[in-house]
């Protein structure tokens, strides 16, 4: 029962299946803290849903107040609430700023368990092809980190390689850990 469990960590594997077709975050290094800042374009596309949802809810309210079409008001309002909620849920991950704080010595992405900076042993760049049936397929890149306990956690995930590569270099220097490029040729 006490046999050691061996497991292989494949550093060339990506962690997330999907990824956006735009630059979603940039790394900002401010003295003792490095954090991921969402880009305006990423926020704007989420905002379209919030605006459309809000518009439909307003429209439903108007219909409810000025006409007897209850069924239309419910239909339009239902759509509005669904789209608005969807927009908010899309926006939320962008508002949670992942940070590497040298003051507290912690990495916190507001999602996974916090990681001590000293436990981060390396960073990896991975690539993948996001294949869609209803859109052009595209390359997407991940910046992932490996902890000394064997956990791999995603830091960045978008399709602007130049920015990701630059951010990865800056983060590796900030954390003083090695950075490896695990991009591979993808054959469909």
């Amino acid at each position: 029962m006490n046999e050691p469990i061996s497991c292989e960590i494949k550093l060339e594997r990506t962690l997330i299946q999907d990824g956006p077709k735009f630059l979603s975050h940039k790394l900002i290094v401010a003295e003792q803290v490095a954090y991921l800042k969402p880009t305006i374009s990423a926020m704007l596309f989420c905002f379209v849903y919030i605006v459309v949802g809000f518009f439909l809810i307003s429209l439903a309210s108007y219909i409810l107040l000025h006409s007897q079409k209850m069924d239309l008001a419910i239909f339009v309002g239902g759509f509005g609430i669904a789209i608005f909620t969807f927009g908010v849920s899309l926006m939320q991950p962008f508002l949670k700023r992942a940070s590497f704080d040298k003051n507290s010595q912690l990495f916190d992405n507001k999602r996974d368990r916090k990681v001590k900076l000293e436990h981060i042993i390396s960073l990896q760049i991975n690539n993948k092809m996001v294949v869609r049936k209803q859109a052009l397929s595209y390359y997407c890149y991940e910046l992932n980190m490996l902890t000394k306990h064997g956990r791999r956690i995603n830091i960045l995930n978008h399709n602007n390689f130049e920015q990701l590569n630059s951010d990865a270099g800056a983060l590796a220097a900030f954390l003083q850990v090695p950075l490896s490029d695990y991009r591979r040729k993808i054959i469909l």
Binding site: D18, P20, F22, V48, V52, I83, L90, R132, Q134, A135
Partner: peptide, 27 residues
């Protein structure tokens, strides 16, 4: 025109934005 504008805004977000979760939800 209202139906068109709402649909166009949503279509715009999907085809221009390339937000993966939106495409996934549609699919």
């Amino acid at each position: 025109v209202i139906t068109g504008l709402v649909l166009a805004a949503l279509v715009f977000s999907v085809i221009v934005g390339g937000m993966p979760s939106i495409a996934s939800v549609t699919e």
